[in-house]
Write a protein that binds this DNA or RNA. Structure first.
Length: 258
DNA sequence: GAATATGTTTAAAT
DNA sequence: CATTTAAACATATT
């Protein structure tokens, strides 16, 4: 999977490597997750110049000037891999982009769930990196769900997935089981700080590690989230519990509200 | 060989 | 009707 920090780095790397280049051809291997036909998609992007790559929520957006924009969601297991024209495509490739200069990248997903969306609807949900403390407070005050569910709700805040939700909540010392609307104002302030801090630190670590290569997600630096981690950095044993079918990792350092 | 990991959509159950 | 839960997706890794 890739969450906000990984995608931010991917967008930067892709811009650096391919921006301004002409997309000579696009191969579509799996077409069941497209919003238009393969032919239509190819027609929209082939022989167009890639003018920019952005991250929006958990998606990447590939801009082709006035010709349109292509949204990519990697879903659970999607990955991006660099390719050369004369090489065989990686296993489980869904689509491949070939630019001038015999270079390009492939979207690989063993689950075949990554989605490519031509000219997607504009995202109106606040981004986790941009949301203000006030917005976050208002959002939480309206929800009776568990705070972790709200953080991961892409219709509420975009960009946070299962692993970073755990990391952020540990950093803020808030139990993932807390009821969102019961979290006091002062603690919301801390949550807001932790959210930006954890995400920005992850971006900087992944960026430093990946340099200008498109690598899979890197999560060695996780403090809490991961079945192999036994203790928090402060020495507390890590507990786990399923929230909405996904595993939440946390410790007793984290206060439960409500 | 069973459990786990992972996001989203959709269906089913409460 | 609202809310919660589960299934589906496909496969590699532990």
């Amino acid at each position: 999977m890739a969450e906000l920090p990984d995608l931010t780095v991917f967008a930067r790397t892709l811009s650096h490597r391919f921006e301004g280049k002409l997309l000579k051809s696009m191969e579509i291997i799996v077409d069941k997750k497209l919003n238009v036909s393969g032919t239509e998609l190819k027609k929209a992007v082939e022989n167009k110049k890639l003018t920019g790559v952005d991250r929006v929520g958990k998606t990447l957006q590939f801009h082709f000037g006035n010709s349109g924009m292509l949204g990519l969601h990697l879903m659970l297991r999607g990955e991006l891999k660099e390719i050369k024209a004369d090489q065989e495509l990686p296993k489980h490739t869904i689509a491949a982009f070939h630019f001038t200069g015999a270079e390009g990248f492939a979207i690989v997903d063993l689950l075949k769930q990554a989605t490519l969306t031509l000219n997607p609807k504009e995202n109106v949900v606040p981004d986790a990196l941009l949301i203000s403390e006030k917005e976050l407070g208002v959002l939480l005050s309206k929800r009776s769900k568990k705070v972790k569910e709200v953080l991961m709700d892409q219709k509420a805040i975009s960009g946070i997935g299962n692993s970073y939700a755990d990391e952020i909540l540990w950093d803020a010392r808030i139990s993932p089981l807390s009821v969102a609307r019961e979290i006091p104002e002062k603690v919301v302030k801390q949550l807001h700080v932790s959210m930006k801090k954890v995400l920005k630190e992850a971006i900087s670590k992944i960026g430093a590690e990946n340099k200008n290569e498109l690598m899979g997600e890197l999560r060695d630096f996780m403090n809490i989230h991961g079945a192999h981690i036994k203790k928090s950095p402060t020495g507390y044993p890590i507990k786990s519990e399923k929230i909405n079918g996904r595993t939440a990792y946390f410790t007793t350092e984290q206060k439960k509200y409500g």
